[in-house]
């Protein structure tokens, strides 16, 4: 059963067709990778799914609900969470509060309840702190709870982004280049972590990544974009030997020897 169905998705920026009638179906519970050279339209594709951009054409469906026309916060409420290629943390607030923002939609406190600090609001706030702390433990950042997010190391910031996304309790988690800037050991740890997340949390994961070792190791299905078009899809073994993919990545001469 597919959890995310994308059909004929198109987005133009002026004369540039960033995403050109892409079809895609992501299996529930799978780990799926979207790869492609720089400028292939991968991040635009993510932005279309999460409502940052509105598609010019085509449809995005989560389960059986269409996401087209919804605002980013509404899409988040439907159960899609994401991380960003260029890390977008709330830099000047604490690590714990960053994760607590992820709990936003499950908290009920309103203006009046906040003003009078009702028992319900206080209890809810305490629970939120504890739950946020739990997610920090899960990604291994519990010790840093009181630091400003901007003071974390690069790898830790990426983990915090994941913790924040997990706090929204997503059905579908989109990771935009999670291994960018990580050393081989960190990448290996990340690979294991992504596996664990899927096992522990029943979450479907779609990731954009350039690290082919990581992609080949963890993904069950791979989609390849080039110039906004889907040029291949399949299992890692199939993609590895796909002529079009090799051409897109290595250039034509690598495929047709002179």
């Amino acid at each position: 059963m597919s959890i995310l169905t994308v059909s004929n998705l198109t987005k133009q920026f002026g004369g540039l067709v960033a995403v050109n009638s892409v079809d895609m179906a992501v299996e529930k519970g799978s780990i799926t990778a979207v790869i492609g050279p720089n400028g292939a339209g991968k991040t635009t594709f993510f932005n279309l799914i999460t409502g940052v951009y509105q598609p010019d054409n085509g449809n995005v469906q989560l389960g059986s609900t269409s996401l087209v026309g919804l605002k980013p916060h509404e899409i988040s409420r439907h159960g899609i969470a994401r991380t960003f290629q260029n890390i977008r943390l709330f830099s000047n607030i604490t690590v714990l509060e960053n994760v607590m923002v992820g709990l936003h939609k499950q908290l009920k406190a309103g203006i009046v309840g906040t003003l009078f600090q009702t028992k319900k609001v206080r209890e809810e706030e305490q629970l939120a702190k504890e739950e946020a702390y739990h997610w920090l433990e899960y990604v291994g950042l519990a010790k840093h709870l009181n630091e400003d997010a901007q003071n974390l190391s690069y790898g830790a910031q990426r983990r915090l982004e994941i913790a924040r996304a997990l706090a929204t309790k997503p059905k579908l988690l989109l990771l935009d280049e999670p291994a960018a800037g990580m050393n081989p050991r960190e990448t290996r740890e990340l690979t294991e972590f992504i596996h664990r997340m899927r096992e522990d949390l029943d979450v479907t994961i779609v990731l954009i990544e350039h690290d082919m070792k990581l992609v080949m190791e963890i993904s069950e299905q791979i989609f390849v974009l080039d110039h906004g078009e889907k040029i291949a899809e399949g299992k890692p073994a199939e993609i590895r030997n796909d002529v079009k993919v090799i051409e897109a990545y290595l250039g034509k001469s690598a495929v047709t020897p002179a």
Binding site: T50, G51, V52, K71, P72, H73, I75, S76, R77, A81, R82, F84, R88, L89, F90, S91, N92, I93, E97, V101, G102, H104, K105, R164, T168
Partner: peptide
């Protein structure tokens, strides 16, 4: 504060 720090990330957290 989330909106102040990063609007896009705040929205994607359901704000």
């Amino acid at each position: 504060k989330a909106v102040r720090e990063n609007e896009i990330a705040a929205q994607s957290m359901g704000i």
